[in-house]
Each structure stands twice: as C-alpha cells, then as structure tokens.
Design a protein around this nucleic acid. Structure first.
Length: 309
RNA sequence: CGCGAGGUAGAGCAGCUCGGAAGCUCGCCGGGCUCAUAACCCGGAGGUCACAGGUUCAAAUCCUGUCCUCGCAA
C-alpha cells in the first residue's frame, strides 16, 4: 500500500524505519516544523527529517494540518500512519484519508501523550502497544490489535521507547497486511476503563526525598533522557540519569538519618529516602557531563550534607 | 549575536579574587599490615594548567582572540 507517515520523535523514527523495510511504499513524512532550539536558538529540524531525506522521501512540515487539506488531496496514498506525531489530526484530514495509529500502551489505559512515562512513573511491570484507528478524539479509536510487553526493573524511558516502537512496528505491519486483504477487524474501546495521562513538565522532575526510594527510582526511569529528574544540594542542581533502590544496604546507623541525608560512602552515592535508600548510579552536576556516581563523588565531597528542601 | 557555567595527571575536582616552586579525592604501579578485603599504612610514576597572542623580572592566575564541552530559557 502507499502510505503517508506522520510522526516526529525517536519513537516515530523506529516505526518509520521498519515501514521502509516492508513491502509497503512510504510516499512522504509529515512531522512538526523546525523550531529554534538549543544554545544560540538556532533553527533545528526534527531528527526524522534526516531519515526521510536519506530515503528520498518528501517531508511535509505544516504548522496546521487543517490549512493544508488541499495539499494532502494531491498526495497519492491510500492510508496514513501516525506514530507519536504530537498533534491532533484534524477531522477534515480524517475525512479524506483513513489513518492508523501506533500507541505505546494497552488502550484504553494511558490515553494521551505520555503513556510510556506514566507506566514507568506508576511502577507498572507490564505495558503494551495498541494499533488502532485514528479519529478525532484522544486515542479513543477502535482497536485493530494490541499486545502486552513486560517492563523490566532496568528499563527506563529510553529503552521502553525502543521496545514499544519495535513491537508497534511489527504489529503495524501485520495490521497493514490485514487491511490490504480486507481481513482486519475492529474492536471498540471500553470507555469505562479509559484513563488519560497528563503531559510531563520539567519541574515535575524534582525529586522529593520524603517519598519512598522506589518511587524516586521510578521517577528517574520515567524522566530519563528528557527532561531528567533532579534535586539540589548546597544550591547546586544535580540531575539524576540513572538510579536504583539500594537493597543491599545494611548500615542501620545511617538509616536513622532523615530523608534527604547523603549517606557517607566513598564509592556510592546514597541518599536516605522517606522509605529505603536511593542510590544514584549516573548523575550530572552544573556545567558538567554525565558521570558515574563514583567519578562524581571524587570531586564532590559531601560531608553530612542534606539535600535542599 | 537569547542567558550562563566550564576546559588543570587516566577520571572527577581545588587553586584564579590579591601573579611568585602543581594540590585534593579516586584509579594505576610497587611495598607493608591482614584469614581476608572495595579497609588501613608507606613509597612511586604520570601535567606545555584547551590553543594562540599580549602585559610582566615572573602567568594556571591579568588582557585579547580561537576551538571544544555543558546547563538554563524557548
């Protein structure tokens, strides 16, 4: 089939990659427009543009899709595929082009823009991927197929993007074949089970050490890569890229410290949480690179210090 | 020209305000203590202090330019 692809971030890239390797023909990539980003506020294209160009695919970066319906009418394609496009698809477009969506959760659970982060934040051990029909509502279209996927303790946002996108691509290709053969079936979502997830804000990444260490670890996992969980010590902001629950910690004296106390240790970066001990494995100080905890501690000597409230 | 931080031994940092013998923590090598150790003690190697100019009797330190890294904001 001739397919028009809608998607912007890493998740979309993985799905697109698989689509390009299939027998279907991708006729173009629709993604968000260039934006000033980073130091110097230079204009930057989404990374997926690079992939599209390498494959000689036309790229469409429209600020408002609804203003370009005529453009879409001229594109020779039978089906649209959305994968983390990042914006609503207007009804006018859905009227002229059937669209299939890849969503990294077991819908109707976790509708919205942050399904993977939400699953990690909640400490879920299982999530999934759903292939469904895109319609005007928020991830509420009828379902073609869905499959569960295990979340391992060492998984974080980055690894789950890879896993869900790979599975999503596989399910998508199977679904496309069925649509092509007219054997696809649709199942409505159970509205009574629907949950919606909120967008993540940078300030949500602040670690509150009165919470349990397990919850803090989940936050670090959910916020990995971007925007990254953080806290302050002595006025310095420290970003936590990787952490774990220190289950092997046996020093009971140290455990008497209050939440947020940094437990003295030469090689391990341990912080007392409201319940349990939080161990930082990779972190980043101000103006510095991401470091292993042991390297970071070599230059930062925290004596009896407590995390800023 | 959006705002800001930084480049000093293999790693992470201090020193710079106020120019005057290159330091700390870790790693590495060797030795000692130990049943033993990621513990402890002794010794050792390893740096054109990012690069290029300038000021000075003297520059990691002050001035100018260049390159690179990172954070914030959007």
């Amino acid at each position: 089939m001739k397919i028009l692809f809608f998607g912007t971030p890493r998740f979309a890239e993985i799905v697109l990659q698989q689509l390009l390797h299939s027998h279907h023909t991708v006729v173009g990539v629709v993604c968000q427009s260039d934006k000033p980003a980073g130091r110097g506020n230079k204009m930057k294209s989404p990374h997926i543009v690079q992939m599209a160009k390498e494959n000689n695919l036309p790229v469409f970066q429209f600020e408002r899709l609804s203003e370009h319906i005529d453009n879409f009418k001229q594109i020779d394609c039978q089906l649209g595929v959305t994968a983390s496009y990042g914006k609503y698809i207007p009804k006018a477009l859905l009227d002229i082009l059937p669209i299939v969506n890849v969503h990294p959760s077991m819908l109707p659970k976790y509708r919205g823009g942050t399904p993977i982060q939400s699953a990690l934040l909640n400490g879920d051990e299982v999530t999934g991927v759903t292939i469904m029909k895109t319609n005007v509502g928020m991830d509420d279209g009828d379902i073609y197929v869905q499959q569960k996927l295990e979340i391992l303790p060492e998984d974080d946002y980055v690894s789950m993007i890879e896993k869900t996108a790979s599975l999503g691509a596989k399910l998508l290709l199977e679904t496309l074949d069925k649509i092509e053969n007219n054997t696809a079936t649709l199942t409505p979502q159970d509205e009574t089970q629907a949950t919606k997830v909120k967008l993540i804000k940078k300030e949500d990444g602040l670690l509150d050490f009165s919470a349990s260490a397990a919850k803090l670890v989940n936050k670090v996992r959910a916020f990995s890569e971007s925007p990254v969980a953080y806290f302050f010590v002595g006025g310095e902001r420290i970003k936590v890229h990787k952490a774990k629950l220190a289950t092997d910690f046996e020093n009971e004296e140290a455990l008497l410290g209050k939440a947020g106390a940094i437990i003295p240790n030469k090689k391990r970066f341990l912080i007392q949480a409201g319940c349990g001990v939080f161990e930082i494995l990779k972190c980043q100080g101000e103006g510095g690179k991401v470091l292993d905890a042991s390297a970071f501690l070599n230059g930062h000597h925290f004596k009896a210090m407590v995390v800023d409230a």
